[in-house]
Nucleic acid binder design. Structure first.
Lengths: 216, 216
DNA sequence: CGACCAATTGAATTGATTCAAGGTCCGTGG
DNA sequence: CCACGGACCTTGAATCAATTCAATTGGTCG
């Protein structure tokens, strides 16, 4: 969609804290940070895979499409997350910036220690996606939403206020719902006094217990 | 459920052909083959993770449960598949024998080459599970079933006759459906002359094109 | 043969979607 | 500064795909 621009400033050192990711950084040749505007493509389905990407700020969605245009978002990546790791030499998913994201390219050095790190990364991602499988296959709309919100809370370690950088349609395509259903489910949670909608993209969790109770 | 028994015969060398897996075998200390009867547990949720498991024959299901007992099967493993690889030191899923399976334990030697192999394995699994995410999130019952059957065909490289070692309930829990729906969808495919039900566990594909066309 | 479990089929129900109508927010230009 | 347009979000009503509940059939094993 729109073209990205390389940030001229503050691009040499990452601000990421996660020790796992920092370990990875030390074994790669990190590039500078590139800014991807809203909805711009980071890599496309079929593109050559290889380098990894580190989210410095903003949000990224990893997606797949059916041939008739239905979209499934397989994951959202937030600041500190690494993505782009794939089987084979072609990307089977595509990645887009959700809200304007700063992405650092990590060029893999071909060392054994690096592979070890990658394995840890892959396993963590794998554990995540398996939880997603359970969510998609066996939870109802309320449970999906509650699980999503709890996950966001943990990732943002926000005490109370959750930020929704993505729009309703993205949430729907992540949870296997329609955007109307997402809207309605939020209303249900609101009516139950579990959350409060501060704005379209800000949610206050009033009753974390109740929200967690819905996850199952 | 039932207890496993170690096979006294033909247990020292694996019959697996997949070069990726054979490479893995050469870097592990393969144990003997243990037979797990129908529905017996191979490892449970919360068990200590570590060794890998190689399916020598039969079928294994990898599952997760919600706290109220809903089950999602995240994958089926057939002869030649390796499973048991997980993040952290506790299994977050559990594995059961579907139909009586022979399982070889692979004790990881802690070498770098081994990690490299594991990475390849993890990435392959990752690619698989992502396809499953799309299936669960965005396909309807017919499409799910068609995709499942095509996948089985490819894995069994069967020309025409597909074997269903698992029962309807397992298929349902894999596809995010109910067993009644699985039954009905099979009937629809039968009525469309796309498949023929030779027996409960044998399906003849009459029109592979049509079946593939349903997959999207 | 009878018991039991799995699979099929039918009928009623329901959770989520689809279709449609407003409402809100925000940026742009008069 | 306010009006307008467009994109996104919310809400309602009707519809539908899949589930639930309930028989019935089929297959297997003692």
């Amino acid at each position: 969609m729109l073209s990205q621009t390389t940030l001229p400033i503050a691009s040499t050192t990452s601000t990421v804290r996660d020790p796992e990711v920092r370990g990875l950084l030390s074994l790669t040749l990190p590039g500078s940070v590139t800014f991807y505007p809203v909805d711009s493509v980071i890599y496309g389905q079929g593109d050559t895979a290889g380098p990894l990407y580190l989210v410095e700020f903003g949000t990224v969605r990893i997606c797949r499409m059916t041939s008739d245009g239905r979209r499934q978002i397989t994951s959202f990546c937030y600041a500190g997350d690494v993505f782009g790791l794939e089987d084979g030499d072609e990307h089977q998913s595509y990645a887009e910036s959700v809200d304007g994201a700063g992405i650092r390219l990590l060029r893999p050095t071909d060392s054994a220690a690096f592979a070890q790190k990658l394995l840890g990364l892959a396993l963590r991602r794998f554990a995540r996606v398996q939880k997603h499988v359970l969510l998609l296959g066996r939870l109802n709309a309320n449970e999906k939403m509650a699980t999503f919100l709890i996950d966001l809370m943990e990732r943002q370690d926000a005490d109370g206020i959750i930020n929704l950088p993505m729009q309703r349609n993205d949430i729907a395509d992540y949870l296997g719902l329609t955007f109307e259903t997402v809207s309605r489910v939020l209303r249900v949670l609101k009516d139950k006094q579990i959350i409060r909608l501060l704005s379209v993209e800000k949610i206050e969790v009033l009753d974390t217990e109740a929200l967690a109770g819905l996850c199952e």
